[in-house]
Every structure is written in C-alpha cells, then in structure tokens.
Amino acid sequence: MRSLVVVLSFHGAEDTLACVDSVVRGSPAHDLLVIDNGSFDGVLEQVAARWPHVETLQTGTNLGFSGGMNAGVAAGLQDGYDVVTVLNNDTLVDHGALDEVVGVAAGGGVAVSPRVLYRDDPSRTWFEGGRLDPDDGLPRHMTPHEAAAAGARDEGDPYAVDLLAGCCVTASAATWRDVGPFDERYFLDFEDSDWSMRARSGGTALLVVPRARIRHGVSRSFTGAYAYLGTYYYLRNLLLFASTWLPARQRRRLLRTRVLPAPVRDGREHGLRAGLRTGRILTDVALARLRGSYGRASVRLERRAQRWSAG
C-alpha cells in the first residue's frame, strides 16, 4: 500500500522544515510531497537539499489552503497512491501517528483525523472532533465533555464525529474521489467543514483516532496582514457555509450573534481602531456576497491589509 502525505507551505519555511523532519524521522513508510503555495521563499530548495527523496511542487501563486491542498491530492491520485493525507505545515507528527490514521483509512468509506495537541503545550488538546453548534450551526471543536460522550479515550478505538479538522485529514484514494476536492471558493477557512459535510452527506464516516497524536502550532499563519485577511475569510466563508448547509433559523441566529456584532466586539476587546477596521472588513464581506466574489481576496483588500499591519 502506498501512502502520500501532502504538506502545504506559504511563507512558513521554518515550520515546514520541522514538520517534514518529524514525518521523515517518525513515519518513514509514508512518502512526502511538499508544496510551496507561491511564496518562493526557498523552502523547496531547502527540502530538496536535506531530503532528496521528498517530492516538491511549486504552484506559482497563492491558491489558498483549498487550492494548494487540492493540487497535492490530485498529484497523489494521479500517481496511484492508495491513501493521501493532507497535513498543515505547522504540525509535528508523533512517531507512529501516520501509521495509525492510514491503517484506519485504508479500507475506504471513512476519512480520519488524529487527536491534535497544542504544539507549545502538548498537555492540552486542540482538536478531538468537531460538531455544528446546536444553537446557531457554527462549526466548532467539541468540548472535552462532548468528546468523551462520543467515545474519546486516550488509548481507545476510533470514534465518529461530525466534522474533521483540515490540519490533518487522511482518506483512501477512492474516498477522495467520491467526496471530491476542497471547495476553492473558500480559499482559506471553513473549507474543511464544508468537505466534512459533503463527505457525511455522501455516506463517508468521519473518525478521530485518539491513539494518533500530532502537535499543531494553531494559526501561526495568521500574523501581519493575514490577521486582517483572516477576519475577512472567516466572516465571508462562515456566511457561505451557512447558506450551503444551515436552515434559515440558524442562518439568522448566526448572522445576529456571530457576524454583525464583530466590529463592536473587536472594538471592545482591542480598541476603537480595531473595531472600525473590522467594520470596514464586514462591508467588504457584504459586497463579496452581493457580487458572488469568492476565492482569494481582491488585490485592493490585500494591499489595505498590508497597510494596516504596517501601522
């Protein structure tokens, strides 16, 4: 059985090299494909110099998480791999973790995530399953109590969840083909929740394997301009997800409690300027919805985010 791990890098060479090292050392049975999402920061050259057997791919432009990972999955399917894993570049993979998730996913009909710990504090769990909030439908991580009720135990068997986290998803080639790629309208954020919903609606079971552990840097890419762009993608994509998957009652509640109050909430927590900027972003989100503009944010918005991050 041939297993491929796809690692996507965007201006994160240091994290990417550490991630690749953890896979090469701890999971040598699995092949690696490292993709640079158009950052041209030398990461592929460094990977090739240190690990000549690791495959690399340059997208040439920033395709977002969804587009970049789709390129890797497509390459894996074309090359005849039996199982493909997408893995965030800011993760460290514990010894044997890939063996565990691949072993569960190889039979087909399921998609699998490991238990995800905080990279800076491995005593804390970041993800052990996702669900839709029963009140407003927000995709969120399960609480420890919810995870325990679902069957999460340190050395227990895999258990079913509603949503997987995109930082590490493993599925057979047949499952990837059945579910299809990540929806590139999302670009970044909520594409994993949308993929999970499509998988479940098509009969694919979503499982977490608690014995498999990885450590995640958690939003290490959302710095500088991407702190503002992250707000844009979060709000825009949350509305896209809601319009696709949630009933009208939950859509209205989500808009009223999560989206519209964002400028006031940021103003209270971070000051007036932050609140005004979030208000401007919310206007951009509304315009994007009216125009049906998805995928990567406009050049105008990216440049404004750069100006804001500079001061």
Rank of each mutant, 00 (worst) to 15 (best):
R200G: 14
T257W: 03
L87D: 04
L276I: 12
T56F: 10
V83C: 15
D284N: 07
Q46H: 08
G267N: 05
E184Y: 01
N88F: 00
Q78W: 09
V93Q: 00
L44A: 01
I214N: 03
A286R: 09
S9H: 03
G217Y: 02
E128S: 10
R289F: 01
H53N: 13
G180C: 12
V24D: 13
V104W: 10
S221F: 15
L33I: 03
Q306T: 11
P122N: 08
G26T: 06
L32S: 08
R304S: 11
G275I: 11
V20E: 06
N89E: 15
L260S: 02
E14Q: 06
P114E: 08
L8H: 00
L260C: 04
T85K: 00
H270T: 05
L188V: 14
S293P: 03
H216I: 14
R249I: 12
A49W: 14
H11R: 11
L254E: 13
V208E: 07
A49H: 11
L229R: 09
A286E: 04
P181N: 00
D36L: 01
G311A: 14
L239K: 07
G267A: 08
S9Q: 05
V47A: 07
A71R: 09
L287Q: 09
H30M: 09
G292W: 12
E146W: 00
L235M: 12
M142A: 05
A48H: 13
L8C: 02
A274E: 15
S196V: 09
G230Y: 08
G129K: 07
S293R: 15
V169P: 08
D178N: 04
A171N: 07
M69W: 14
G156D: 10
A149M: 10
W245C: 06
S3N: 10
R251C: 13
Y234G: 01
Q250D: 08
V110I: 05
G96D: 08
V54C: 11
D41N: 12
S123E: 15
L272K: 01
A297R: 07
G107K: 15
S293A: 15
V161E: 10
T175E: 04
G38W: 13
G26S: 10
T59G: 07
Y118T: 09
A212Q: 12
T223R: 14
H95P: 08
V5G: 00
D136I: 08
Q306F: 03
G107C: 09
G224Q: 07
R25E: 13
A212S: 05
G137S: 05
Y234Q: 01
V209F: 06
P52M: 03
D41F: 10
G217S: 03
G151V: 09
V112F: 08
H270A: 07
A248I: 11
A97N: 03
V209E: 14
D154I: 10
G217N: 05
L132G: 10
L33S: 02
V161C: 03
V86K: 01
G311N: 08
R25W: 11
T257M: 02
P134G: 00
N62E: 03
H30G: 07
S298C: 14
D135F: 04
T91V: 15
P181H: 00
V285D: 05
V264T: 11
F40M: 09
S309I: 12
L260N: 04
S22E: 08
R268W: 15
E14R: 05
N70F: 03
A111G: 04
G80A: 02
V23C: 02
D135Q: 12
G295E: 09
E100M: 11
A75Y: 14
R296T: 07
P28M: 00
T56N: 06
W195Q: 13
A199L: 09
R251M: 06
